[in-house]
């Protein structure tokens, strides 16, 4: 409650920026997935900060955040499975080696 809302939202925006930058710039698939996770958590942090600063007790917001985190975990587990498969086929997780198709 002591941290003002502006600071929290600013932090979440910065996290989103870091995440998108990481996805666009990094060459390692694992790092890209970590950057994705950062971008997801920017949204989570922003919802949490709105919930904690709302005037009345917001049970829906609190439960929604748990649902959202669980959903992202599902998506992440599928992504990691795909990452392992890519490593088995290519023996590398370097994106710059996956350049058979024209961009």
């Amino acid at each position: 409650m002591h941290i003002p809302l502006e600071v929290l939202i600013g932090t979440s925006l910065a996290l989103l920026g870091i995440g998108i930058y990481g996805i666009l710039v990094r060459r390692s698939l694992l790092r890209m997935i970590i950057a994705l996770e950062i971008a997801f958590n920017a949204g989570n942090l922003s919802i949490i900060s709105f919930v904690s600063h709302s005037k009345n007790f917001d049970a829906v917001g609190r439960s929604a955040i748990l649902v959202l985190i669980a959903t992202e975990a599902c998506a992440l587990s599928v992504m990691l499975a795909i990452l392992i498969n890519i490593y088995r086929v290519f023996k590398s997780i370097d994106v710059s080696k996956l350049r058979k198709l024209r961009w």
Binding site: L36, S46, F90, K100
Partner: peptide, 20 residues
């Protein structure tokens, strides 16, 4: 696999923007 990798990254990026 390469096409799927592109889709994966783009679509997950879209999901994170949507969540935000």
């Amino acid at each position: 696999l390469e096409a799927g990798m592109k889709y994966l990254m783009m679509s997950a990026l879209a999901s994170s923007l949507m969540l935000y």
